[in-house]
Simulated scan of single mutants.
Amino acid sequence: MPALPLAGVMGWPVAHSRSPQLHRHWLDRYGIRGHYVPLTVAPEHLAQVLHALPRAGFVGLNVTIPHKQAVLALADVVTDRAALIGAANTLIFRPDGRIHADNTDGYGFTANLFQQQPEWNPAAGPAAVIGAGGAARAVVAALLECHVPELRIANRTRIRADQIKAEFGARVVVYDWAQIGNMLEGATTVVNSTSMGMEGAQPLRVPLDALSPDALVTDLVYTPLDTLFLREARSRGCRTVDGLGMLLHQAAPGFERWFGVRPQVDDALRVAVLG
């Protein structure tokens, strides 16, 4: 490891990322002499920049939109889960210069739920996932790994949901967007994986009449922290989990690989990231 190890988050744009506050908190907390910086890199410069960074003292990167798919083709080693999801969010630069690509989003998703709701049992009943984008793919992979008996999914463009079924198998059941209300019936885990409900985006409007009060409901959106979707689910008696914890937990494996310490995800970290 370099005397002053460097890591960062690469995207286009990247100014909105909370990752620098997150990793700065951990670096300070564990007394590590290192830096974590935002890197704004246009898609046409991705390969050139990526291959130069290890020579500049970088030990790894987080990768965000729009580079999460493209880095797979540039990596020397791709984990099975990154290949299955079709995207990487964590890169490790090995001492021999090889680039190792992984996806920790699914880990972050389930770790957040287990931390906030320790009694959550994913195998207790069907899961319902709203949306079929990149984040949804990580969530689907994680839920299936946690032995969810049936995974229901709906997306405004059905073909993307059909593609997830084709790749992830028989436990995935696709619903039309107009059938979301029916999809929630009997579901014990409900996930909004879309950006709807985020500040500046259109609200997520789905009929919740069939939602069971025993369901655990989570939203990957964390700006605002308490979305309308979560508030409406709580009004029906559901337990809810906000999306910030997924961001925090997905960061931990990368930090450990880059800086040699397994960091804690706790209330002090949430405060630091929320600023």
Rank of each mutant, 00 (worst) to 15 (best):
29 R>E: 07
84 L>D: 13
91 L>R: 04
89 N>P: 13
15 A>H: 14
70 A>L: 06
21 Q>C: 02
74 L>N: 00
77 V>G: 02
43 P>T: 09
71 V>C: 07
91 L>T: 01
80 D>L: 07
60 G>C: 04
91 L>F: 08
78 V>Y: 03
65 I>Y: 13
82 A>S: 04
41 V>H: 02
14 V>E: 08
63 V>K: 00
58 F>P: 00
31 G>S: 09
40 T>A: 14
44 E>W: 00
15 A>K: 13
79 T>H: 10
49 V>R: 06
81 R>P: 01
77 V>K: 11
12 W>K: 05
68 K>S: 03
62 N>H: 08
27 L>D: 14
51 H>S: 08
60 G>Q: 04
28 D>Q: 15
30 Y>F: 15
15 A>D: 13
54 P>Y: 11
27 L>Q: 14
78 V>R: 10
46 L>H: 04
21 Q>S: 06
37 V>G: 03
67 H>G: 00
21 Q>W: 09
53 L>T: 04
90 T>L: 03
38 P>I: 04
29 R>P: 01
73 A>P: 01
52 A>S: 15
89 N>F: 13
42 A>E: 13
70 A>Q: 15
41 V>W: 04
10 M>S: 09
72 L>D: 06
53 L>Q: 08
67 H>T: 00
77 V>I: 14
69 Q>L: 05
31 G>R: 07
9 V>M: 09
68 K>P: 04
67 H>D: 01
81 R>C: 03
89 N>G: 15
71 V>Q: 05
32 I>Y: 05
61 L>R: 01
90 T>I: 02
29 R>H: 11
64 T>K: 07
66 P>F: 01
45 H>N: 12
23 H>R: 04
48 Q>A: 12
36 Y>H: 13
30 Y>V: 10
41 V>E: 03
22 L>G: 13
62 N>I: 00
67 H>Q: 03
87 A>C: 12
52 A>R: 15
86 G>H: 10
55 R>F: 09
84 L>S: 14
72 L>R: 04
11 G>Y: 08
26 W>M: 11
20 P>W: 15
26 W>R: 11
9 V>Q: 10
60 G>R: 01
60 G>P: 02
87 A>I: 07
65 I>M: 13
88 A>C: 13
83 A>W: 04
61 L>Q: 02
18 R>Y: 11
89 N>R: 13
10 M>N: 07
40 T>W: 09
78 V>A: 02
46 L>K: 02
64 T>G: 12
17 S>Q: 12
54 P>E: 05
13 P>Y: 12
15 A>R: 15
